[in-house]
Design a protein around this nucleic acid. Structure first.
Lengths: 219, 219
DNA sequence: GACGCTCTCGGGGTTTTCCCGGATCCGCGC
DNA sequence: GCGCGGATCCGGGAAAACCCCGAGAGCGTC
């Protein structure tokens, strides 16, 4: 029986290339999508066996789409095919329900094998990533479910974004029309939550998590 | 006459897909390469009309490869096909000699048209990027070649790298075995040279220029 | 209504950063 | 030699950041 595959990536050229590679190796490319929302919608209609998915989908979040798909379609397995291979990306994808994680530097042969094994129910990870997931699992087992997801309040996120831009507390206070002491308080609580020690680390955190790119004013 | 094209990208799947797309539209894919060094070496032998090139080649620098190719092969035009479309990436590529810049979210049709126009000698830029280059040109024309390359001393670079990691002046002083006041002075002169205002902006600068990734101790 | 959370503001302290001047050394040209 | 610019080093003083604390107002939940 043929395995139906769905390809999610915001690059049309990439989608076409992967679709052809898989088609030539006996898979049925049942659908493609360019962003997370479309992926969820189409996957629900098509019910592919494997969703081959990029994490970096321009604006929308690939991780959220993975979570939607794996919860709504328990028979569909998601194989992430991403450029990064970054520690956090891998763990987030796995937490969201991904069955495997391949970096885009993989060869066509590796890709084909990975899709086949994913369809068969085996978890597939690029060399090095499997150990990463295992290590994180152990750390979770040691510390029985405490932080790992320190969520910031809306105001803390506002302040964090401006701190990451290099503004001082007074400049941030002017923009948000509050006291600079309040700004400093938000900075402090953010530092505590993220277990960081100063604004530079805060800026690094914001940059690595893409918080510094988003627009601020929406009303 | 057929246009010979060379494809440089560290993702085999991407290379194959692009090669097939171009092949089906009458281009001759004369060569492919996975990194900058190979690109320069092979391009010198093959002398393609157009080099279709990713900037993000894993370890090696795409910009350096562009510079090599365009200086050594004046008849070869380099069309960058990159994921980012970031301000600095575009400008660096153009400065290195790229004839055009396409983001990877382009369609196959756009890609084919871009390669054709690049071969014909027209500069090709994704919408929005052309204005970016023009704007930068104007800024250069306004300020008659003053800064644009503020070089830092060795010690300033050492300090900058550690500042970008989030270390305080005292921690940096301990590592470099100097007084923390001296560290602060290096920070100050760096701020002046780069026309920045605080350590967070310094960290952003270092991250954007890749200074924070390099190792520090080589002796 | 009690509770918890967020956002706001401030007191009062230490530490760090930011900005200035001043010192030494070293290479380079006159 | 002697000045001159640079790189590197150090210090004083003002500003900002960091850290802990308490407190009121608003807003949902139980």
């Amino acid at each position: 029986m043929t395995v139906s595959v769905m390809i999610v990536d915001d690059h049309p050229i990439w989608r076409d290339g992967v679709a052809r590679d898989l088609g030539e190796h006996g898979f049925e490319v049942a659908a493609t999508a360019a962003d997370g929302d479309a992926a969820v919608r189409i996957a629900r209609a098509v019910r592919p066996a494997v969703v081959l998915m990029d994490l970096n989908l321009g604006s929308s979040s690939g991780v959220a789409a993975i979570r939607e798909i794996t919860t709504q379609l328990p028979d569909t397995r998601v194989l992430v095919l991403s450029a990064s291979g970054e520690h956090d990306d891998v763990l987030e994808a796995v937490k969201a329900g991904a069955s495997g994680y391949l970096v885009k530097s993989a060869s066509v042969r590796e890709l084909v094998a990975a899709v086949r094994r994913t369809a068969g129910g085996d978890p597939v990870f690029t060399a090095g990533l499997a150990g990463m997931v295992l290590g994180e699992y152990r750390r979770m087992a040691d510390a029985p479910s405490d932080q790992q997801a320190p969520r910031l309040t809306e105001r803390e996120t506002d302040v964090l974004r401006l701190v990451a831009k290099g503004l001082t507390a007074r400049q941030i206070a002017d923009r948000l029309v509050i006291s600079h002491r309040t700004v400093e308080n938000h900075v402090q609580s953010t530092l505590r939550k993220l277990q960081l020690h100063n604004r530079v680390e805060l800026a690094r955190y914001a940059i690595e998590h893409g918080l510094d790119q988003e627009q601020e004013g929406r009303g």
